[in-house]
Design a binder for these strands. Sequence first.
DNA 1: GACGATTAGTGTATTACATACACAGTACGA
DNA 2: TCGTACTGTGTATGTAATACACTAATCGTC
Lengths: 267, 267
Amino acid sequence: MAARKKVEPKALTHDDIMQASVRADPGLRLRSELLWEDRTRPTRGPKPAVTPEEVVQAAIDIADDDGLPALTMNAVATRLGFTTMAIYRYFPNKEALYDAIVDAGMGLPPVTATPRAGWRAEVVQWAHAKRTMLCERPWLAELPFVAAPHGPNWLSWLEALTDSLSRTRLAPAELGQVISIVDSYTRGASDTAVSMARARKRGTSEAEWAAAVGADLGRAIDDPRFRKFAAILTAPSDGQPRSMEESFDFGLQRVLDGIEIYLDTCT
Amino acid sequence: MAARKKVEPKALTHDDIMQASVRADPGLRLRSELLWEDRTRPTRGPKPAVTPEEVVQAAIDIADDDGLPALTMNAVATRLGFTTMAIYRYFPNKEALYDAIVDAGMGLPPVTATPRAGWRAEVVQWAHAKRTMLCERPWLAELPFVAAPHGPNWLSWLEALTDSLSRTRLAPAELGQVISIVDSYTRGASDTAVSMARARKRGTSEAEWAAAVGADLGRAIDDPRFRKFAAILTAPSDGQPRSMEESFDFGLQRVLDGIEIYLDTCT
DNA sequence: GACGATTAGTGTATTACATACACAGTACGA
DNA sequence: TCGTACTGTGTATGTAATACACTAATCGTC
C-alpha cells in the first residue's frame, strides 16, 4: 500500500464535492447525499441565477409535458435560459438530476384528517393517493425509483403510512412488514393504470389504449397454451365491469383483510 | 381527404413490414406483432447467419453479464460476429429488441406438480418462482416490462397463475381480479430484492448494499418529520430478523389470507 | 441455365446526447 | 484592492442509435 500522503487540510470547495459525487461509484450513500445536503452555497463568486429547486422544477415540467425522453440536459438548460453545461453546476450528472426529480416529483402524502379515522380508512386513503400520484407523473415509474436514494418526500410517504399503521399497535418488526405489504401492493397494482396514464399523455385515448392492450392479450384466445386465461378474457362480463380504480380498491380491501386477520391472531 | 391512390397490389416484402413497424406510432399492437409473427423468412436471398432467437440470446447474455447499460446494438452485433447494422435485419430498432428480451428473459413458469396441490400452495410456488426469476434477471425490472407487449412467455406465467387460481371456482371476473392482486403484490414486493440482486451483480456485497440502504433510510433518524418510521429502524430486533425471502413470504401469506376470506364470503 | 428480384451483411454518415475541459467574467472577504 | 472561488459559456469528445447506399448471395422463373 502506498504511504499515506499528508494531505493539506484545505477545506473542500463546492466543486470538489460535486466532482467527488461524479466519480464515486453510484453508491446509494453518495447519491443520497445530494438529496439531503445543505445546498446553501458559499458566498464567494457570482450568485447562481436560479436555485437547485428551480432546476428540478424545470426538469419535472419537461417530463410532465413531453415525457421522460424529452428530458435532456439541454432541454432543462434551454427552459431556464442557460446553456447545457450550466446545469452541471447544480447537478453533477444526469443521474443526480433523476434522483432529485424522483423525490420532488412524488410530492408529499395527503394530510391525515383530524379527528383521526381508523387505521384501515387511513391506509385506504394513503394507497389511493399514492396511486393517483403515480398516475399523474407516469414517468416516475419509468425510472428505477424504488432503487433510487430516498429523499425527504419519499420518507414522508413512508412516515404517513407508518403513522396510520402504528395505530394497530403492532410491534416494530411486524409493523415494517405490514408497511411493506401495503406499499408493494400499491405500487404493483398501479402499474397498469400508470401505463394507461402514460399513453393518455402521449395523446392516445383510453379506448385506443384498451383496444391495443386487448388485442395484445387477445392473442391468448385460440391458443391452447393459454386456454384458462383466455376464458377470463372471453367470459361475458356479467354486471357492470369495474373501473380500474375500483379494481385497485377491491384488491386493496383483500390485502387489508389479510392484514386484519393477522392483527387478530396477534392479540 | 386526398383521393385514395390506387396502390399496386404488390405483395409486401419482408423489408416493408420491418419498415412499417419502425414508422408506426409505437402503438402496442404493432410492437407485439413482432413477438408473435411467424418469422420464417422468404426463401429468396442469402440465408441469415443466425436466427432471431440467437440474437435475443446474445442480448440476454450481455445484460446478464454486464447489465443493461452494456446492452448496445454494437455489443450484440460484436458478440455474434456481425457489424452493428446487421442486427437491424432482425429487429427494426432497439425497442423491438427490448420487447423480445423481456419476453424471452422471463422464461417459462415452473411446472405444477401432479398430483395437484391445493390452489394456495400452488400460488405460493408461483409467486416465489416469479420473484426468483426477477432477481436472476434484475435488468427485467429496469425495462418498462409491465407496459411491454405481452409475448408467449408472459402469457404463460399468467396462464399458470390462472390455472392454479381457477381451482377456487371463482367467477371469471373475480378470478381476473384475484390474479391481479397476486401478481401486483409479487412484482411490488420483489423490488427490493431485485435491487439488491442488481447490486450484487455489480460486485457489491450484500453487506455493503445493506449498509448503504441503511444509511440512506437512516437519515430519518433524528429528523422529527420521520419519527414514527425512525422508530421502526431503531427498534431492537427481537428474535432473528427475517430474510428477505421470508419477509416476502410473510406478506404473501397475508395477501392470500385476504383472498381466502373473500372466497369464503362468496360461497 | 441465365437473369432478375429479394435479401444478408457491410461501410459510412448523421444525429442526439452526456459530459470533459478551459475560459471569462463576477463578487465576496481578507 | 486583490485573490480566490464560483457562475455560466464555448468548444470538443465519445458513445449510441440508426439512416442510406452498396456488394454479394441465393432462389424462382423464363
